[in-house]
């Protein structure tokens, strides 16, 4: 495939195809048995190929964030959450370097500031916290869970369950926020909880 001419729109289009299962890999149609596993395998291979293609692109002086922000402005992300969610995963895909599976903290923070602006009420505290406290690269799983977490925090962190399956980084962040807000926060919330039965029964609604 010709690598030089491919732009971010094309990459995104192919990425969406792979994710939605429309990927077409050189004449491999024969997956009938155990198709889920096969599908996963095929799409993983397709992603690897795509990422090789991305790696081999000639850099034209524009940063990946410029490109992503351009792409973002053309997409209708406000309306469709599943579309946004896919784009969010795509951002992680694009931020990887040198065939690594994780992305660096600084890239992750920049990317979050770009994609989650206006969607995550704790975006800035979150980015500051990650920059200060995270020493290792960001896993894909953590990346994905941050999106879920951002949707979760619209009202307050009361219903957050530190015993749940959230990544440790998010656990630490929530603890940090609670500490920062201090005791008056705890007290006032204790009150809220009693008065408002809804806030107690409020269950995590999976946005994915």
């Amino acid at each position: 495939m010709d690598a030089s001419g491919i732009d971010i729109f094309e990459i995104y289009r192919r990425y969406c195809d792979i994710k939605s299962g429309h990927a077409y890999i050189g004449g491999e149609e024969g997956y009938r048995q155990d198709s889920d596993l096969q599908k996963a395998k095929v799409s993983r291979e397709a992603l690897t190929q795509l990422s090789k293609l991305v790696e081999s692109r000639v850099t034209t002086g524009v940063t990946i964030f410029d490109e992503l922000s351009m792409l973002m402005s053309r997409l209708n992300l406000r309306a469709d959450f599943s579309e946004f969610s896919r784009f969010y995963d795509f951002v992680f895909f694009m931020c990887r370097e040198n065939g690594q599976k994780n992305i660096t903290v600084s890239r992750a923070v920049n990317a979050w500031k770009l994609v989650l602006a206006g969607r995550f009420s704790l975006l800035h505290p979150w980015c500051d916290f990650v920059e200060k406290n995270q020493r290792y690269n960001i896993f894909e799983d953590t990346w994905q869970q941050v999106l879920a977490f951002s949707g979760f925090t619209h009202d307050s962190l009361d219903a957050y369950d530190p015993e749940g399956a959230w990544p440790v980084l998010i656990d630490d962040f929530v603890e940090h926020v609670h500490r920062m807000l201090g005791s008056y926060y705890d007290n006032s919330n204790l009150h809220c909880n009693c008065d408002d039965p809804e806030s107690q029964s409020w269950v995590f609604d999976d946005p994915l």
Binding site: D141, Q145, D206
Partner: peptide
């Protein structure tokens, strides 16, 4: 993680 429930 399970696609429909991240707790699984």
């Amino acid at each position: 993680r399970d696609k429909s429930n991240p707790q699984i």
